[in-house]
Simulated scan of single mutants.
Amino acid sequence: MAPDLADTATTKPFSALRPIPSPPAAMARPAAARIPDHAPVSSDAGLAAALQQIATMIRIGRDASLLEEGDAADHVFRVVRGTLRSVKVLADGRRCITKFLQPGDFVGLSEREEYSFTVEAVSDATLLRYPRRRFQTLLRGDTRLMHTLLTLICGEMTAVQDRLLLLGRKSAAERMASFLLAMAERQGSQPEDAAAGAIMTVHLPMCRQDIADYLGLTIETVSRLISRLRAQRVIRLEGAQNLVLLRRDLLEEMCEIETA
């Protein structure tokens, strides 16, 4: 059963990576081998096409481990479908989720010889796997591809700066509001009825414990914040994994965002 926003984190045995069998030679590459429509594209599409020649598509199940901290960094991955979490466990045993990885995100981009984090699947996920050495060689041979990748990395650095601000200076309520707005932006959620207060739906496959570990809060605080936003009719829960933003404007005010 998929995790509910009201559920706490659950632990399941890690399953092995499952490469998808290659199609017959007479068949063209399946559309799934390309970055799907809901993933970030534009100039990024050229990068995806160039990397396709060295890619292997794999699937992992919910709660499975894609890679472990300390493993040899032999591969780079890119998310095609699903959501994953990047995890660090502190010396005192506390878990910190540093990022939720979504379609279009790269995993394992580093000059280190070992992965410095663990990556687990929040939901069933499909990824493209690239041999690290061949990945680097391909990029070095094409300055346009290198520039495209650099642009993506700069975007990630900006996101890291925003996260440092979120954890270092924002209140618990501001953190929650920022998280919901960021998830809506990543998913490209569009208002369903602008005249009714910019209603939009956000898919949240992660449980409340995941959200707490990402925001640096306790699960009790996350639950209280969600209950408060529901009571104030700022959000509405729909099903196990969907949350409707009824008043985006109020969330922006909570984040101290200046709107045009």
Rank of each mutant, 00 (worst) to 15 (best):
S65N: 08
S65D: 06
L67M: 08
E68I: 04
E69V: 14
D71E: 15
A72K: 07
A73K: 04
H75A: 13
H75W: 09
H75R: 07
V76R: 06
V76F: 09
V76I: 15
R78Q: 15
V79W: 01
V79Y: 02
V79A: 05
V80P: 02
V80Y: 01
T83M: 09
L84N: 05
R85N: 11
S86K: 06
S86M: 14
L90I: 11
L90H: 13
A91E: 13
A91T: 12
D92N: 15
R94C: 12
R94Y: 03
R94G: 13
R95L: 11
R95G: 11
R95T: 14
C96L: 14
I97H: 04
K99G: 12
K99N: 13
F100I: 01
L101K: 04
Q102L: 10
Q102H: 06
Q102M: 09
Q102S: 12
G104F: 03
D105W: 04
V107D: 15
L109W: 08
E111R: 15
E111T: 13
R112F: 08
R112W: 07
E113P: 07
E113D: 12
E113G: 15
E114F: 05
E114Y: 03
Y115A: 12
Y115H: 11
Y115P: 09
S116M: 11
S116E: 10
V119I: 10
V119C: 05
V119G: 00
A121C: 02
V122A: 08
D124C: 04
A125M: 00
T126A: 11
L127N: 00
L127C: 12
L128E: 01
L128K: 00
L128P: 04
L128H: 01
R129L: 10
R129P: 02
Y130R: 14
P131E: 12
P131A: 09
P131G: 11
P131C: 10
R132N: 05
R133K: 13
F135L: 00
F135N: 02
T137F: 00
L138W: 00
L139N: 14
L139H: 05
R140N: 15
G141Q: 15
D142R: 10
T143L: 14
T143N: 10
T143D: 09
R144T: 14
R144V: 14
R144Q: 13
L145S: 13
M146R: 11
